[in-house]
Design a protein around this nucleic acid. Structure first.
Lengths: 200, 200
DNA sequence: TGGGTCATGTAACCTGTTACATGATTAG
DNA sequence: CTAATCATGTAACAGGTTACATGACCCA
């Protein structure tokens, strides 16, 4: 998958490893992370596979760079990947793993966790987005059709953040209710958790 | 992280590798996947680390099993992990990677992609959930407080699915608009993509 | 002279996936 | 008789993370 992301970027125009790194940082980074070490490694294997070709470019005032261009085989592979049916789900959400086992900690601590999460909005950096989006769109103007797809990925990020904040609110509400129940229990009432549909 | 998930499960009561696999499949599976091979490997390293201890249990009518129990060191590690500040974001969404580069394909194909995605609800299997939830809660009744946290993770799944369907609808709408624009362009009008806030 | 950007990587390790391998019991 | 369930793993490979290493140029 990372290979295909890199391939997609190079298909817009030849790039060096360093340039790929920067583009990654301010566009794909919303939904994929990659270390430079990984990028350089992937470039090597992609070159061996014949998807891309390398050219040494001398520069003055800056270090030389190795620029990669997409080959016809690479273009085929990109299209093949785009059309391929089965995307891996790749669902691995550390904060849900934590939530699942949170019962081991005191309720107050967990409420604090969700409050912090709500205020931090785990999905990327909202502040940076405005500027980085704007820049992306400016570049995209050369090919207005592509801008539409980029906008879709950004819309996802926004909707996800919103949903996540709402979920945090829901969690805080449930845990505050649990707290009240526990203090009532101190007075001697029976303990039951109502499982009925509360539709989150 | 997987280690800590396994540790959390064992903290509720001793389990064999096989049992961990089944519990995983119908509870943590909403937000984490693990192959059996990986579980057995993690168990080995966790045992070496002293977080869990192994006991051979003979069974009649069934193969023997190796049951793992949490050690005091394991309990410490579980709590340390629960309190630790920095959760990795771990954001890797293959369908967004694909969306980002979709401009290479004809619009019709992409509309079909989002329609299929909307109808399939990429986040787990809604049908199975009802039964598996019910079972989970039944077990949880022994410790009603834990049920609350499990419910939170399930609520996330539901909210996520809903949001994702909405996002698919939004994408379909945008792409249909693009299609109309492209056919209008055929009549000779100017091409401009409006980037203004449409608030997804 | 010190930090930022440009530029390229290697090595070791950890985590996740795929494929393979074995074998008993039980329910249809 | 056959498929499912119970049960345990190994090996190889792919993908991701952390740490390290180097060096020139430019701006303050």
């Amino acid at each position: 998958m990372l290979k295909h992301g890199i391939l997609g970027l190079i298909s817009y125009g030849s790039l060096s490893g360093y340039e790929i790194m920067t583009v990654f940082r301010d566009s794909l980074n919303h939904f994929w992370t990659a270390q430079t070490s990984q990028i350089y490694r992937e470039l090597q294997t992609m070159e061996k596979a014949g998807w891309i070709s390398e050219t040494h470019v001398a520069q003055t005032g800056k270090p030389d760079k190795n620029v990669f261009s997409i080959t016809p085989a690479g273009r085929d592979e990109l299209l093949r990947w785009l059309r391929e049916g089965d995307l891996p789900a790749n669902t691995r959400l550390p904060f849900l793993m934590k939530t699942f086992f949170m019962g081991e900690l005191p309720v107050e601590e967990n409420i604090a966790f969700f409050r912090a999460m709500r205020d931090e909005h785990v999905f990327p950096d909202e502040g940076k987005k405005a500027s980085s989006d704007a820049e992306m769109y400016r570049k995209a103007m050369k090919d207005p059709e592509k801008a539409v797809y980029w906008k879709l990925t950004i819309a996802f990020g926004q909707m996800y953040e919103k949903m996540q904040r709402e979920w945090c609110e829901y969690c805080i509400g449930e845990l505050e209710a649990l707290q009240r129940m526990k203090s009532a229990q101190g007075q001697g009432s029976a303990v039951t958790v109502d499982i009925e549909e509360e539709e989150p």
